[in-house]
Each structure stands twice: as structure tokens, then as C-alpha cells.
Simulated assay, not measured.
Amino acid sequence: MIDVARRAGVSQASVSLVLNDTGGVRVADATRQKVREAAEELGYRIWRRSPVGSGSIRTIGLLVDDIGSNPLSLNAVEAARERAWKDGCVLVVLPIHGDKDLERCAIDLLMAQRLVGIVYQSYFTQELTLPKVLRTANIILLNCYTRDPNVPFIIPGHADGARGAVAALLDAGHRRIGFINGKSSVEASRHRLEGYRKAHEDRGLAVDPELIRDGDFTIGPGERETTVLMALRKPPTAIFCASDRTAVGCYEALKTLGLSVPGDVSVIGFDDDPLASIVTPPLSTVRVPHARMGEIAVEYLLGRAAGERAAGSVTSRIACDYVARESVAAPRRRAPRAEAGTRRRVRAELPLEAGK
């Protein structure tokens, strides 16, 4: 309010009277207009909470950039809904799809509710710039973060999760471990690659650059890049995939090459997609705990609204645990070899750079 008063050229008391719409006190219309314009320019809003005894429904808002592309993120939404309802709160989910006008309207809609707080969720783990109006709100970021240390956030521990998965392969005796990553522009991909490298460093092992391939978290590149890896003169005995869907593509390529999982090649995925438990053999993976993240976010908002938590006091990075299933075994003494005819055909079809 001091900033608004300075911008409007009025006293802080006048700002308080105008923004709190205090009754029984006369404030000149010109002063009201100055205060409102200054507040709008600074992105200042009064964060209102209705009294506990009021008859309106308590709500928790969830702003999400994309609710359809990643079905796994819906686990966070569903868990948040269940946790909110335990405390008599209704979760209001508003997809905004990167539309700033829609985002402003969604925030205005939430501000008009008997609002406990807001969860701001991102599809990809990323740094973002929070709208000014939300910077002083009871808010927590889910799968995203800002540089402001006062804004609490929860993101998955991608690097440590990948490190644990590769460690499991190293423990099984593998030393040539292929890695099919997601898009290099995505933060989660960079962190998962970091974990892959770190697991090797932990054992004093060098990373062979030819074993690292970029994909896009989907099945097609998983199949294509597995074929490239297995066409190397010294192919991997295990492949770590940056997503379970990539691992499904990896399975398909190995089957086409006449190789078995885990008899010839061990495979680990990432995410714990429902697909992981129904493929044959069931896929070892790394679980991203979306549901628990949703619960923690709502618990934080409820706690802070009740005065039990200070701003920023929340777990920032949540563990992604390794889930052992049936796709990992000790390597054979010899490197896996595709059937001769298939291998010659694959080499002939690959681009020249594939064997680098």
C-alpha cells in the first residue's frame, strides 16, 4: 500500500480506505480514481478471505497451462481435489493454455470466490514469471518455480530419479548403458541427463557420447533411437529411457531386431505411466509422484490460510523413486547381437551419422 500511495500521491490511509472499500468514510472521487489506477498499474489487489462463518463455499483454485497433453498430471489434479474436499473446500480447475487474457479472467474469477489459495501448475517443469497479482497471494507453484525465494514451489527430483535408475543398471553389472532422452530444450530432459551422467561419475566411469540420443518422450523416437544404438559396433547391454512411452518404442525396436528384454537388453523408463505395468515384461521405471505433489500443494495452502505455515515453507523438490519390475537383468557375457539379416538391413537403412 505504501507503493500505491506513493504512485497515487496520497496517504497510505487513503489507499487503505479505498482498496478495503471502508464504509462510513468520505473519500473524494478523484482520490479513489487515482488509487485504483495506481493499484492497477502496480498489479496490487486485496487478497480477500471471507469469514469462517459465512455461508459461501470455500474454494481452492488450480490454474494449469495444459490439462490434456500429459494424462499423468491429472493425478495431481485428482489428488488435490480429494485433499481439498477433506477440508470442505471445492477445487476449481481452470486451464489457461498460455493465454494471458484468459489467465487474467481466470484470476479475476477466483478472486471473487471465498478463496483459500491458488495452485499454479505447469505441464513441463520450468521457470516462469508469475503474474503480478499473484505474487502476494496464498499460492504454491506445482511443477514450476520462479526466482523469487518467497514463492513456494514443488518440482520432481528428475536428476536424482535418473541417477537412481542408472545406478540400478550399474548394480546389475551393466557398463554400456544407452540413454534416449526427451527434447533437449525441456528442463526435465536436462536434469535426467544430468542424473545419467552423475550415476556414471559416482562409479568413476566415463560416459560414451555415442550412447546418448535425443528423442521427444514419445514412442516413435524410442523405436528409432533404439535401432540406432543397437547398430553401433559396440551396442549397449542396457537402455535407460527418459519416459515410459519412449521405453515402449524401445521394446518394439528390440523385438524387431530379434532381441529380448531383459535377456539381451535391460530397459528402464521414467514416469511410471500405466503402460509400464502392462507391457511384457513389466517395465522398471522411475515414479514421478504427481498425486503426492497435488496433496502437498493443497496441504500447504490450507496450513498457511490457517496461520500454521509461513510463506515459502514447503518441500521444493520431491523424490522420484526407482520402481523395480522385470525388465532388468545381469548382462550376458557377450554384447547383444541382432539377427544377422536384420542387423545388415538396419545398418543399410540408418543415416550415416547414426554410427558415430
Rank of each mutant, 00 (worst) to 15 (best):
L232I: 09
G312N: 04
R203P: 07
R333T: 10
P152S: 11
R26V: 09
A242Q: 06
G88I: 08
D99M: 13
A28W: 03
A80T: 04
V265C: 04
D3M: 11
L302F: 03
I46F: 05
L259W: 03
Y145V: 08
G98S: 08
F240W: 06
C241E: 08
P71R: 07
G195N: 05
E103A: 14
L170R: 07
L94K: 13
A84S: 15
W85T: 07
L142K: 03
H174F: 03
I140E: 02
G178E: 07
V64R: 00
G164I: 00
E223N: 14
D216L: 08
R245I: 01
E103V: 08
R7K: 15
V116A: 09
R213T: 10
P351A: 11
W85C: 01
G312Q: 13
P281C: 08
G178S: 02
V133G: 02
L110W: 12
F240D: 05
D3I: 02
S327Q: 07
L17S: 05
R347Q: 10
I268D: 00
R317P: 00
A79K: 09
A84G: 14
A168G: 01
S56N: 09
G9F: 05
I212M: 13
D21C: 03
A8L: 11
A276G: 05
G161L: 06
P149D: 12
V288E: 06
D216M: 12
T31W: 00
V15D: 12
S260R: 12
R135Q: 15
R304D: 11
A253G: 13
P152A: 07
V4H: 03
C241L: 02
G355I: 03
P336L: 11
I268K: 00
L170H: 06
V119Y: 07
L302R: 14
I219A: 06
T246I: 03
A172G: 02
E103F: 03
L283A: 04
A38T: 14
V93Y: 06
A291M: 06
E41V: 14
W47A: 09
H290G: 02
G164Q: 14
G164K: 15
L94P: 00
R48P: 01
S316W: 00
E187Y: 12
Y145C: 09
S277I: 09
A329K: 07
S327D: 11
G294K: 13
D3C: 07
N20A: 08
P131C: 10
V25G: 08
K234L: 12
D99S: 12
A5S: 09
